[in-house]
Write a protein that binds this DNA or RNA. Sequence first.
DNA 1: TCCTACAAACCGGATAGTCGGTATGTAGAT
DNA 2: ATCTACATACCGACTATCCGGTTTGTAGGA
Lengths: 191, 191
Amino acid sequence: MTNTKEHILNVSLNLFMQKSYKEVTLKEIVDKTGMSKGAFYHYFESKEQLFVEVINFAFATVIDDSYNKFSKESLFQFYHDYIDYFINEEAPKLTVNYISLTFDALKFVPDFQRKLLKSQKAQMETWKEVIQEARDRGEINTPMKDEEIAKMFIYSIDGFGLHRVFGQINREHMKLSLLTLWDSFYEELKV
Amino acid sequence: MTNTKEHILNVSLNLFMQKSYKEVTLKEIVDKTGMSKGAFYHYFESKEQLFVEVINFAFATVIDDSYNKFSKESLFQFYHDYIDYFINEEAPKLTVNYISLTFDALKFVPDFQRKLLKSQKAQMETWKEVIQEARDRGEINTPMKDEEIAKMFIYSIDGFGLHRVFGQINREHMKLSLLTLWDSFYEELKV
DNA sequence: TCCTACAAACCGGATAGTCGGTATGTAGAT
DNA sequence: ATCTACATACCGACTATCCGGTTTGTAGGA
């Protein structure tokens, strides 16, 4: 890929993360890249196509199964790894603008919803796997079904993220808060 | 307030719930209200001021403490009431567009964030109250602290709502899924 | 001498907002 | 009762600006 094209993609991503698709204008893109419209339309056929490429560019790594790399030694270790990952990688992106970007992607980018659902499914499977092993191993002992436990973890972190978007909480406080929550839920599961 | 002004507010709210602030045009508002631009600018000084008024108009009732009306007889009854309310009143609004509306409101409407945080705090207090009473009454018996239990309920339903936005799930399935989840969590708390 | 990589001028349509004007109502003086 | 003076409600043509997109031009490397 040309350097210039990647440059345009990077600048545009930044802009799309600050404003909605509609709010970002071609003029802004052109100005901030230091290029001309001619250059832009040399690399992209339309603003919409640019957006699709930006999204695929940006979500290429996000949507994959990074949580598959977490330790599966124990449920305890797994959710601790998850929190570290969430605080360091995911949380900084969790802003009003980033969620808006996701919504714009749902509107404009074909196949985006399918990819999102697929990644959600994969995430669920990973949790269920870890939970089942934890149960077999005797790490936890609870009447809750594997899927319900997985849902509590997944939904609660998503809800947590959403809440975090509204009030601004610093990173250390976030981590502690999340850790306390899941630790206490984990203790409950052990009983 | 004039009838006409209220009419404009209603029509605009509908439009802002379908599209973002930027996507809604004055022409649309004027056309759908059956009025002229002159009339519009007679009642509002700008599109932005209209938006602020629409938001205050719309969220005046939404942000209040409707969950205070749920039965506090038992935690069991409370969360069942909550689900009924959520499925019938909140869930239909939980769409990409409605969440986008909330984000636009955060951008444009002064004091909106404060109101939102206040309502979240009130919600948390209500849950904690119900949970504490349930514990005192012996309805539940768990090492989890009241606040952690409340957080699990609140975050999980918000996360649930967010997930629901992405994949389209029908109302009956939603209700069942949520009921199953919370019932199993509740059983866990009783142990 | 072409082709690539860009620049710059330009286009039609849409946008939010303005403005001069009108029709209707109404309070107070006569 | 009616006339005057003014307010309110509304209309729609108009404007300046900005939008995404197109066309034309050109410097420089192969």
